[in-house]
Design a protein around this nucleic acid. Structure first.
Length: 718
DNA sequence: ACATTCCCTG
DNA sequence: CAGGGAATGT
C-alpha cells in the first residue's frame, strides 16, 4: 500500500551507499580474520540484495542467493559438531565488529545535503537495527536459544557462528534495513500526515465544541448518532462516505492533501486538512457551517473523533502486527546458525520481510494517541464513541451503508490499559473474583512448581522484556492479545492446579463479565442496568460477535488449549523444534496465555521433541546395525520410512506441506545420532545434548499463516 | 535456592 | 501426552 517511488530513489541510493560501506568493512574484517572461503560470498550477496530489493525485486536476490549458498551448505550439514567451532568464534567476532562499526561508518563527505540525508538514513537504520536491544543483545538472545541444550558453553563469547551463520545473520540484515528504511519513510510520512489531520481535526473540533457548547444529553443513543451522522454526510456529499480520513489511512499518496481539497465539500470546507494553521480554518469553518445546526455539529464532532480513533487504531494495529512479525522472525534467526542457507532465501521469508515495518515508527504512532482527540475520546464522550466502537450494538449492526461506522477495530482494545482498567477494577465483580481465585491459588503445592517447569521460561521472559523495552507497543500488543488479564488482580494469578482447566475457564468467563461491566460503565447505556448475571451471557456473546467482525486475533480468545491447538502445534513443529514461549504466544493469538497453558504448550513441544529424538535414535541405530558406515549414506527422502512416521505423527492428514527444511533437519538429526552412536558417545552421560544443540539451531521461521485463526479453523475441517 | 531440562512412567 | 522425580545449570 505504500508507494514509494520518487522520494525514495534518493534514499535508496543513500542506503546503498551505507550498505556498501558496511560491506566493505565486513570484507575487510573477513579477510583479517581468515574466514573460510565459502563465507566470502555471503557478506557481499546481502548487499547486492539490498540494492536490488530497494528497486523492488526481492525474489531475484533470493534465488540468486540460494544458488550461491547451496554449495557450502551441504558441507556444513554433517560436520557442524566439532569442526568449525573456531571459525565460528572468529566469524562471530567479525560479524559483531561489523555490526558495531556499522553506525560509525563515516561516510566521506560528499555534498552537504546528501550528507545530511545520509546521516538521517543511517540514524534510522541504526535505530531500527538496534530496536531488538541492539545487535549484541540480539545475538546473545539468539544464543541463549541455541545454547539451551548446553548451558556451559555460553559464557565467553562462545557464541557459535558458522560460515552459514554469518551470511545468515548478515544477509537478512541488509534486507531488514532496506525494508525498514522504505517503510520508515513511508510510515513516517503517514504519521506526519495523520498528525496534520489530527491537528486540523482538533482545531475543528475545538471550534465545534465552542460553537455547539455541550449540548450532549449524556446518554449515548448510538442509533441517533448514526442517523445524524448519516444525515450529515448524506447532506454534505451524497452517496459518498466521508473520505478525509479514510483516504489518509488507506492511501499514502502525498498529493492526497491537495486531492482532498477538491474531493468533497467536507474536506474542503470543514476539515481543511492542508491548512493546518488555525486561522484560515476557523474562518472557513464558520462560514461554511452556518447552515449546519448544532446537532449536526455534534454529530460531526463525534464522527471525527471516532474516525481519528479508528485511524489511530488501525495504524497501531498495522504497525504492531508488522512489528511482531519482524520480532518473531529476528528472534528465530539467530538460533538457526547452521545449514540450509536456502532457508534464508525462502520465498516465505522474503514475503515476511516485505511486510516488516519500522520499529521506530511505532514510537511515533504510539505517542500520537496521547496527544490526540482520538485517544482522549473516552474522557470526553466515551459514552458515545467508545461503545460505538466496541459495544455490542456495533456487532449486531454493521451499518453496511455507513462504511465510516462499520468495522473498525475495537478502539477499547487498543487503548492504554488505564483506560480500561479503572472501570474494571471498580467493577463489583472484582472483589469476589480476587478472593475466589486467591483461594484456588493459595494451595499451590509443590506440584505446581513442577508443572511450572515448562511454563514461561526466563528466556521467554527476557524476550518479552526486550519487547517491552522497545516501548509501550508491547503493552498494547499484550492488551490486544488479551493478556490484559495480567492486569486484573484475580486472573493475573495462574490457576495452580493443572487439572483445573475448569477454573481457568471460569476465570475466563469472569474476565469477560468484568469487561462487560467496564463497557457498560463507559457507555452509560441502559444495558448497564442489566444484572451482572443476565448481562453476562448475552453480552459475552455480543463481545464475541463484535470481535469476530474486525479482529480475528481477538476471536475466540480462550485459555484452554484445544485439540486443534495441539494439531497446530504439531504442524509448527515442522518449522521449529525449540520455540520459546514468547514465540508460541505470538503464534497462538487466539489463546489467552497464562502460566498453565503456556506450560502445557511448552510441554507439548517437549513431547514432540521426545518422540522425534526417539525415532531418530532408533533409526540411527538401525542404520548402524544394517552396516552403514558413513553418516553421509543416510539420506532422508520424502519416502523414507522415518520421514513417513514423523509425518504421520505430526501431520496426520497431511494438513500442510511439510517444509523441505524439515527433511533436512531429520536427516541432520539422524546423522548426528548415527555418528554419536557410531563413536560410542552413547555411553557417555548426556551424550544427546550435543545433538540437541545442533538441532536447536535448525529452527526455521514460522510461516505467517500460523498466526491466522482462520487457518486454524481450516485445520478443523480438513 | 531456583529454574529448566532430562528422563521415565502411566 | 501429562506427571513427576532427578539431574543439571545459574
Amino acid at each position: 500500500m505504500v508507494n514509494i517511488d520518487q522520494p525514495l530513489t534518493d534514499t535508496s541510493n543513500l542506503l546503498r551507499d551505507i550498505l556498501k560501506s558496511k560491506e566493505k568493512r565486513l570484507q575487510d574484517l573477513s579477510n583479517t580474520n581468515i574466514m573460510p572461503s565459502s563465507t566470502c560470498g555471503p557478506p557481499k550477496t546481502p548487499t547486492e540484495n539490498g540494492a536490488e530489493d530497494i528497486n523492488g525485486d526481492e525474489r531475484n536476490g533470493a534465488s540468486d542467493h540460494s544458488a550461491d549458498e547451496s554449495g557450502d551448505q551441504s558441507d556444513e550439514d554433517s560436520s557442524l559438531l566439532g569442526q568449525s567451532r573456531l571459525d565460528e568464534a572468529e566469524m562471530d567476532e567479525a560479524r559483531s565488529d561489523a555490526e558495531n562499526g556499522f553506525s560509525d561508518i563515516n561516510s566521506s563527505p560528499s555534498s552537504d545535503t546528501k550528507e545530511a540525508k545520509r546521516a538521517r538514513v543511517e540514524n534510522i537504520i541504526t535505530s531500527i537495527q538496534g530496536q531488538p536491544s541492539q545487535d549484541t543483545a540480539e545475538s546473545s538472545y539468539g544464543f541463549s536459544e541455541v545454547k539451551r541444550p548446553k548451558r556451559k558453553q555460553y559464557q565467553p563469547q562462545p557464541h557459535v557462528t558458522k560460515p552459514s551463520d554469518l551470511h545468515q545473520q548478515e544477509q537478512p540484515s541488509p534486507k531488514l534495513r532496506r525494508t525498514d528504511c522504505n517503510s520508515t519513510s513511508s510510515v513516517e510520512d503517514e504519521i506526519w500526515q495523520l498528525r496534520y489531520q489530527l491537528n486540523a481535526v482538533q482545531n475543528y473540533i475545538k471550534h465545534c465544541d465552542e460553537t455547539t457548547n455541550k449540548q450532549m444529553n449524556g446518554y449515548g443513543c448510538i442509533e441517533n448518532i448514526q442517523r445524524l451522522h448519516q444525515a450529515y454526510f448524506a447532506n454534505q456529499s451524497p452517496g459518498q462516505p466521508p473520505k478525509f480520513l479514510q483516504d489518509r489511512i488507506f492511501d499514502d499518496k502525498p498529493e492526497l492533501y491537495t486531492k482532498e481539497k477538491h474531493d468533497s465539500r467536507i474536506s474542503t470546507s470543514n476539515i481543511k486538512v492542508p491548512a493546518v494553521n488555525g486561522k484560515g480554518i476557523h474562518h472557513e469553518e464558520s462560514d461554511s457551517h452556518i447552515e449546519i445546526d448544532d446537532k449536526e455539529y455534534e454529530e460531526l464532532t463525534k464522527c471525527l473523533k471516532s474516525r481519528i480513533g479508528e485511524a489511530v487504531s488501525s495504524a497501531i494495529e498495522k504497525a504492531l502486527s508488522k512489528f511482531f512479525h519482524r520480532r518473531s522472525q529476528k528472534v528465530r534467526e539467530d538460533p538457526k546458525l547452521t545449514e540450509n542457507p536456502k532457508r534464508n532465501e525462502d520465498p516465505k521469508k522474503v514475503v515476511i520481510e516485505k511486510k516488516q515495518t519500522t520499529d521506530h515508527s511505532l514510537k511515533h504512532i504510539l505517542q500520537l494517541p496521547e496527544r490526540t482527540n482520538g485517544f482522549r475520546l473516552p474522557e470526553h464522550h466515551s459514552a458515545f464513541d467508545l461503545p460505538k466502537l466496541g459495544g455490542h450494538d456495533f456487532s449486531r449492526t454493521p451499518f453496511p451503508h455507513h462504511p465510516s461506522i462499520s468495522f473498525h477495530p475495537p478502539l477499547s482494545y487498543y487503548l492504554p490499559s488505564h483506560v480500561l482498567a479503572p472501570p474494571v477494577y471498580s467493577s463489583p465483580v472484582e472483589p469476589e473474583q480476587t478472593e475466589a481465585l486467591a483461594l484456588v491459588v493459595t494451595p499451590p503445592k509443590k506440584k505446581r512448581t513442577k508443572v511450572t517447569d515448562t511454563r514461561l521460561s526466563p528466556r521467554a521472559a527476557r524476550a518479552l522484556l526486550q519487547e517491552s523495552s522497545l516501548g509501550s507497543q508491547s503493552d498494547l500488543e499484550r492488551m490486544s492479545n488479551g493478556e490484559y488479564s495480567s492486569m486484573i488482580p484475580g486472573t493475573s494469578v495462574a490457576i495452580p492446579n493443572p487439572s483445573l482447566h475448569h477454573s481457568d475457564f471460569m476465570s475466563f468467563y469472569k474476565e469477560q463479565s468484568m469487561l462487560n461491566h467496564s463497557f457498560d460503565l463507559d457507555r452509560c447505556t441502559p444495558s448497564s442496568s442489566i444484572s451482572p448475571n443476565e448481562g453476562f451471557h448475552s453480552m459475552k456473546n455480543d463481545i464475541y460477535d463484535g470481535l469476530d467482525g474486525f479482529d480475528s486475533h481477538h476471536k475466540h480468545l480462550t485459555d484452554t488449549l484445544t485439540p486443534m491447538h495441539l494439531r497446530k502445534a504439531k504442524l509448527m513443529f515442522f518449522y521449529v523444534r525449540y520455540p520459546s514461549s514468547a514465540i508460541l504466544k505470538v503464534y497462538f493469538p487466539d489463546v489467552q496465555f497464562n502460566k498453565n497453558n503456556t506450560a502445557q504448550l511448552v510441554k507439548w513441544f517437549s513431547n514432540f521433541r521426545e518422540f522425534f529424538y526417539i525415532q531418530m535414535e532408533k533409526y540411527a541405530r538401525q542404520a548402524l546395525a544394517e552396516g552403514i558406515k558413513h553418516a553421509e549414506e543416510l539420506v532422508v527422502t520424502l519416502d523414507s520410512e522415518l520421514y513417513r512416521i514423523l509425518n504421520l505423527h505430526y501431520n496426520r492428514n497431511n494438513q500442510i506441506e511439510v517444509p523441505d527444511n524439515f527433511r533436512v533437519v531429520v536427516q541432520t538429526t539422524l546423522r548426528e545420532f548415527f555418528n554419536a552412536v557410531k563413536n560410542g558417545k552413547d555411553q557417555e552421560p548426556s551424550w544427546k545434548k550435543p545433538v540437541y544443540k545442533v538441532i536447536a539451531r535448525l529452527d526455521d521461521v514460522l510461516p505467517e499463516y500460523f498466526k491466522s485463526p482462520n487457518w486454524m479453523e481450516q485445520l478443523g475441517d480438513s
